[in-house]
Design a protein around this nucleic acid. Sequence first.
RNA 1: GCGUCGGUGGUAGAGUGGUCAAUUACAUCAGACUGUAAAUCUGACGCCUUCGGGCUACGGGGGUUCAAAUCCCUCCCGGCGCA
Length: 395
Amino acid sequence: MKFSIEKKLEGTLARAGTIETQNGVIETPAFVVVGTKATVKALTAEQVRSLGAQVVLANTYHLYLQPGTDVVEKAGGFGKFMDWHGPTMTDSGGFQAFSLGAAFGSAVSKVASADAPVEDISPTAGQLANVTDEGVTFKSHIDGSMYLFTPESSMEAQWKIGADMIFAFDECTSPTAPYEYQKKSLDRTFEWAKRSLEAHEKLDTEKRQAIFGVIQGGRHQELREQAAKSMGELGFDGYGIGGSFTKDDIATAVSWVNKILPEEKPRHLLGIGEPRDLFDAVEAGCDLFDCIAPTRMGRHGTLHTHDGRLNIRNAKFVEDFAPIEKDCSCYTCTHHSRAYLAHLFRADEMTAATLASIHNIHFILRLVEKMRKSIFDGNFFEFKKEFCSRYYKEV
RNA sequence: GCGUCGGUGGUAGAGUGGUCAAUUACAUCAGACUGUAAAUCUGACGCCUUCGGGCUACGGGGGUUCAAAUCCCUCCCGGCGCA
């Protein structure tokens, strides 16, 4: 993997560049489409290609459970398995330490509101993941069987899954976890980072896979900066910036980190995909983003337009024969009406998920492409202001 | 015509004297979703309300009872059986 910065935006941390992988080039900033189980939900690989996606991210935990990493390896890696021939990434399973652990069965998401109370993080009954210094024990959400994920086993699994870029094993903490826990977890994630690097170097003697270390530290400046410094010195090929955040200060937390991380390495903001967050993160120096939001929200009937989100299931769209968005060039908008989408959603037809995912992914991919262009053109802030004032109805 | 079973909120369908404005599901209306436990989840769903409550409701009418969707009478409507 080779990262090149082609243009920086004066007075900010923003930059535009390229990442060359053995499976193709990614023009950054870029939005990474999520294909957790070696499929972008509701879409064929051909549709993902048609959308102009540059890179797909799958998940180690999910592929480990199903169909198993041996199958994926025999298939020639997850890209080949799913017929995606471009650049690929895998997440390490570290996020599942959170989503199946502290977050399981609760209303807490990795992006919390600013007034979310700090909570006790002791394990609750029923949660499927528990973190120790050794690794994370998972109880499969599919059949209840038990697994221990360690930095070493995550690296082995990611090696077999075969993506171009992989992540070190980390713990994604809850935004509501107390400072003491964030600190303790950060130390552990640092130890896991070293173990991940070591394990990966043994497996990948020809340096075929790039490995990204993950910066944690919650919403605490001291921890974020410490993580950026210590991880930055470990010599990863790139860096991931992980949750957890407060809704209002994603950009702040990211800029703490990116001021310190080595400039010449790509930075991937993990799991962020709201338009405003993307603008803020690009401005704060991130190069890659992945997010399930466009696909999940699409499946649930929430669609992006330049005038904000709309819920296509709302009664007002039943006889609205205009496209989701007038000037949108996506397949859905050039072929179908809001009324048709509303009908498909109400009728529980699978095609609803497909058409909605196509539109939302198209929207986000084009948005990030325009951000990239605006960095080259030097009008990033004008573009940001114009977009946000319309999308968020700002004055 | 006789007999019999049944008529409950948008729909299906519980409830068979008080804890019933009425279980539940679906439909409807709205909301949430940020490294996918998610084609998921949450809330609302008779009318009014100063949120304490008030009012009208279980085919229509009448009655019994302190109290009726629930019991009785009668009428209307539907299924089935017999003529």
